[in-house]
Design a protein around this nucleic acid. Structure first.
Length: 468
DNA sequence: CGCGTTTGACCCGCGC
DNA sequence: GCGCGGGTCAAACGCG
């Protein structure tokens, strides 16, 4: 279905063009205008501006709200009254609308590019999964004895049942061993290590429960084996945020009381311990420490969930950390493939030193690190793609984070927006968790690739300081 | 005086 | 069993 419209081209010449119409055309909103995207795309592509009353009328015929969710948010259409319509035809306003059209189209193009990149990632992952399955058929060896020897059999059993290739299983054992070692480095860099929960969870104080919470169930609980331990895991999941900041603490909207400071081994910068004071007995704590290798990088690690209402400025970070934590914990459990060991990302032998979001299940609690430094963003959106690695968050977050070279140098509101964007990215996409799982799968495969030198790593320890 | 910070002591888990 | 290191406590201290 097409419609003839009089347009001005780039140099001002008018001519008649046929504009395609579709009942299924996407509708976007911009500055209070409802835009039919097929038309917008068409005019932008032709570098033309419609001057036909009918088209203009169509474009002005709807009322919408302004929203960043251009692709998804469609507001109800309401006809303008005569006065508004008359005003809308004002020449100056029309010029603005046309300019906005082009701007919107440019944004649309960027979004499409992101979608294309996602699609490429997805295809690469599918291909990799196929390769893994082929490997599985070729190499059916008996590694259980080795795993027993290493005390990993219980931990790996859920993966074994899922048809993990035996070579991959062996890699996991190796990786988990490496993970233990890397934990030490991790701690030097401000990412929280194990702690005892004597004052918080009484039920964890029994020896059996301690064992559950601190050791095996870490991974078993991901498969729903131990609900109690899983609950504990949720409480203990940690979200580490790395960002450049000259300040001693990033502003996240919450009130914190410092209750301790320690020198961590291997890091000349002290680690500060804070407790949330916005609510009575709020369990949320955070640790702040500068990166040993790059002291301009501040590592803030959050633990727990607030048990009280939060001001808007605090909700962004809180929901981000909560989403990240729940995503971290739910990922392997909800995975279709179900073969993910979150520990692996923490392994020192993984070739993923430049991810924006990295996982760690280092003993005893899993940690997800959101790396908001420019290096991480640049590297994750470029280098890893070149290497065929899947970047966990780049399509969603990089776009937002890249808007400021130093997000913590931005105004608070801007930071909150940024974190909100991250939150939205995590929570709004139902496939995000599976994407995360797929990403980890991809990295497991990359690790087994002899082309990877295996000397770099994810978030662990000093390596957590992403150096480009 | 109240509140937040500092800092040494203490507890606990882990590795050797 | 011992030492090490992370995490927490609580008294002392400082500041407004």
């Amino acid at each position: 279905m097409e419609e003839e419209v009089i347009c001005n081209d780039a140099i001002g010449n008018s001519r008649v063009v046929e504009v395609p119409h579709s009942s299924s055309s996407r509708v976007m909103s911009f500055n209070g205008k409802r835009l039919i995207m097929d038309e917008v795309d068409f005019f932008a592509e032709k570098k033309m501006s419609p001057v036909n009353d009918l088209t203009l009328h169509q474009m002005e015929h709807h009322h919408v709200d302004t929203s960043l969710d251009l692709l998804t948010k469609i507001s109800p259409s309401n006809k303008l009254d005569d006065r508004e319509y008359s005003n809308a035809r004002n020449e100056n306003e029309y010029a603005v609308v046309v300019a906005k059209l082009h701007e919107t189209n440019a944004e649309n193009q960027r979004l499409r590019e992101l979608i294309d990149r996602l699609r490429i990632d997805h295809n690469a992952l599918e291909e990799h999964i196929m390769q893994l399955k082929q490997k599985q058929n070729k190499h059916e060896t008996n590694d259980e004895a080795t795993e027993e020897k290493n005390g990993m059999n219980m931990i790996l059993r859920p993966f074994l049942n899922m048809g993990e290739p035996s070579q991959e299983r062996k890699n996991m054992v190796d990786l988990m061993e490496c993970d233990k070692k890397s934990t030490q480095k991790l701690c030097n860099n401000g990412v929280i290590q194990e702690k005892t929960e004597r004052e918080e969870d009484h039920h964890e104080n029994s020896p059996s429960n301690k064992a559950l919470s601190n050791q095996v169930p870490r991974l078993n609980s991901f498969n729903g084996v131990d609900d109690q331990a899983s609950e504990s895991m949720i409480k203990k999941a940690r979200v580490s945020v790395r960002a450049r900041s000259e300040a001693n603490m990033i502003s996240d909207g919450c009130q914190w009381r410092k209750y301790g400071q320690k020198m961590a081994k291997g890091n000349p910068c002290p680690r500060a311990y804070y407790r949330c004071t916005m609510g009575t007995a709020c369990p949320v704590r955070k640790q702040v420490q500068r990166c040993a290798e790059d002291r301009s990088v501040l590592v803030t690690t959050y633990e727990g969930q607030h048990n009280h209402a939060l001001p808007p400025t605090a909700k962004a970070m809180a929901s981000t950390t909560t989403s990240a934590a729940s995503m971290l914990l739910s990922g392997p459990m909800t995975s279709v493939d179900g073969l993910i060991n979150p520990t692996i990302l923490e392994s020192g032998s993984l070739p993923c030193s430049h991810t924006m979001a990295t996982l760690s299940a280092s003993a005893p609690f899993p940690t997800i690190t959101l790396d908001l430094t420019e290096e991480a963003i640049n590297n994750s959106s470029q280098k890893q793609l070149q290497q065929g690695q899947f970047n966990l968050l780049h399509p969603f977050l990089a776009q937002k984070f890249m808007s400021g070279s130093n997000i913590f140098g931005m105004e608070n509101a801007s930071f909150v927006d940024t974190v909100s964007a991250a939150t939205a990215a995590m929570t709004s996409d139902p496939k995000f968790t599976s994407a995360l799982v797929a990403a980890i799968t991809s990295i497991v495969g990359s690790n087994s690739n002899p082309n990877n030198n295996g000397t770099t790593n994810g978030t662990s320890g000093d390596q957590n300081c992403n150096k480009s």
